[in-house]
Amino acid sequence: MNSEILSFENVTFTYNAEDGPVRPAVADVSFSIQQGEWIALVGHNGSGKSTIAKLMNGLLFPNKGKVKVFGQEMSEETLWDIRSDLGMVFQNPDNQFVGATVQDDVAFALENNGVPHAVMVERVHEALSQVKMEDYKDHEPHHLSGGQKQRVAIAGALAMRPKLLILDEATSMLDPQGRMEVIETIRRLRESTGLTVISITHDLEEAALAERIIVMNLGQKNMEGTPAAVFSQGSKLTDMGLDLPFAMRMTHLLQEAGVGLQEEHMTEDKLVDELWKYYSKA
């Protein structure tokens, strides 16, 4: 099942390159993503994550290097074909809304893709219920609360039934429960449909759930690996403006306070387990 769905080959991109020498927003970045993977893309503010997302859906084209999606090189010619299977949720949902009502907005990409009306209606309904926004289907998307806007933007991407879903901080304004629900929904979709997910996030608890993390720093790819491997780099991450998941921070704080924990824990359950063992042995 290991087939490549997206790759960057030595991609460099500079905004306004004509204005003279500025640091590239994305500098010589390469990676390969396989079908069905869940990737977290993390990095400090301005490290190039959203630029990478825009290169992935052909909103921007590299100055150097190649972007390949679904086996085709991204270009003016392949762009529309690629986009019909690619769902994208931008950092600010307001920039993304096109419909006058929530349901029109969610239906927009489907109409563009020529989905028959009856199917469309059903998918819009399904997508809105997946994000718990059916009650708002006749509302104007710009006149919603911050979290409601993000839910609608996510519904728009889900309704397309994409093969590849790119989320650019798509849950940053959801309450913790809402965020877990959305992550759970996408996780289920992934299991049932083989969806590939690339999630850009500052939430390291969320990144810890991914199969693989790509870490950006100053426009360059700095690290790539499983959450356990990436988070074991500790101070290297904090030096880049990042942090560790809560359970790992707690492990370190407890060790500093004199509790002799032996292992690094990524989850609270495991941490409590070791604390209990440690305590009951004493």
């Binding site: 921070r249 004199g258 409590v272 604390l275 209990w276």
Partner: peptide, 28 residues
């Protein structure tokens, strides 16, 4: 985490730990 720790070990930390630093100190 304090709640899970207390349930598991039967220990009581006394105050509710509003930050991770306070929790680490109280558990220790």
């Amino acid at each position: 985490l304090q709640r899970d720790f207390e349930e598991r070990t039967g220990l009581k930390l006394g105050e509710v730990s509003l930050t991770e630093e306070v929790l680490a100190k109280n558990i220790a």
